[in-house]
């Protein structure tokens, strides 16, 4: 019905909007596709001064390895430079960080959502300031105490630091989520004789999962994408993927093994691709949760 009034866009507008969108999609997707494709080539093809089509035709790749695609970059990074170790470390750090920060965050967020006192507001305001501070400013405060306490370099140290840095955001997100769960739900449980914690466990926990999963996704991204904390607080052997990649830039670029870095870039990006594919809806709703409600 409404379409009849005036929903037909003029042709020039359609063309304009769609070409703009195509241009944007190219900008957004092409770099990733190009790099993923190029990671199976040799350096002389991926970085070709003479002719950029070399990356497509793979002239040098065929000349050097005899095949159209080569996995030398991946072999060099994962086996020779032990990138698998970094991948394991990332797995440990990310899983632990997400689990701990969600546990802390749900408890805290629930308390903040249900408390009407002024200090709850203060906690949120301070958390906002903490959220705005660049993590690297905190790192310079960690180093000396961690050296003195012999805590520097270990995975658990990074995990707990990432959990703490994650808390302000997690608290904000979960507080706004818990505020949307009607208060009558847990209060009626308490009228029936539950303690506050029992009410939380029996009534709130069963219904909180959508919010927790969304928040968990963002905790995951923060821990997975972190560079400042993991680069400065982990020793060589405990390095996670992102600082390990940064290390490749310093050392292997001179050896002409920039393809190690290219293949690790693709290896780091691949899980994120899968994540967005499966959780696109949750990511979009999480990003807008704070905004649309105001």
């Amino acid at each position: 019905m409404s379409a009849s009034i005036q929903d037909q866009k003029p042709l020039y507008l359609k063309v304009l909007i769609n070409s703009f969108l195509v241009l944007w999609l190219l900008m957004a997707a092409f770099p990733f596709l190009w790099t993923a494709w190029g990671s199976f080539k040799v350096e002389a093809d991926f970085f070709s001064k003479a002719d950029w089509t070399n990356a497509l035709t793979g002239v040098m790749t065929i000349a050097e390895s005899g095949e159209y695609f080569t996995t030398d970059g991946y072999h060099g990074a994962w086996v020779q430079e032990e990138f698998w170790r970094a991948a394991m470390n990332t797995l440990i750090v990310v899983v632990a960080t997400v689990c701990i920060s969600l546990t802390f965050g749900t408890l805290g967020g629930y308390a903040l959502a249900r408390s009407a006192y002024r200090y709850a507001f203060w906690v949120l305001l301070i958390a906002l300031v903490f959220r705005a501070m660049p993590p690297i400013t905190l790192v310079s405060g960690y180093l000396l105490p961690f050296f003195e306490l012999n805590m520097w370099g270990h995975l658990p140290t990074s995990i707990i630091v990432l959990v703490a840095i994650n808390q302000p955001f997690t608290l904000w997100m979960l507080t706004s989520f818990f505020k949307n769960i009607p208060q009558e739900l847990d209060e009626s449980a308490m009228v029936d004789g539950c303690t506050r914690f029992q009410a939380f466990r029996r009534v709130i926990i069963p219904v909180m999962w959508p919010g927790v999963i969304t928040t968990g996704l963002f905790s995951f991204l923060l821990a997975y994408n972190d560079f400042a904390v993991t680069a400065m607080l982990l020793n060589e052997e405990n390095k996670t993927m992102v600082p390990k990649l940064a290390g490749f830039l310093g050392t292997t670029q001179t050896k002409g093994n920039v393809m190690f870095a290219v293949s690790s870039v693709v290896s780091i990006t691949a899980p994120l691709f899968v994540l967005v594919m499966f959780f696109q809806r949750q990511i979009v709703s999480g990003l807008t949760a704070g905004a649309v409600k105001g």
Binding site: A28, A29, L221, V242, I268, L272, V276, M277
Partner: peptide, 13 residues
């Protein structure tokens, strides 16, 4: 999906 990628991907990467 494609529009989200530049934001989701690790900044360093």
């Amino acid at each position: 999906f494609f529009s989200l990628l530049p934001m989701i991907v690790t900044p360093l990467v």
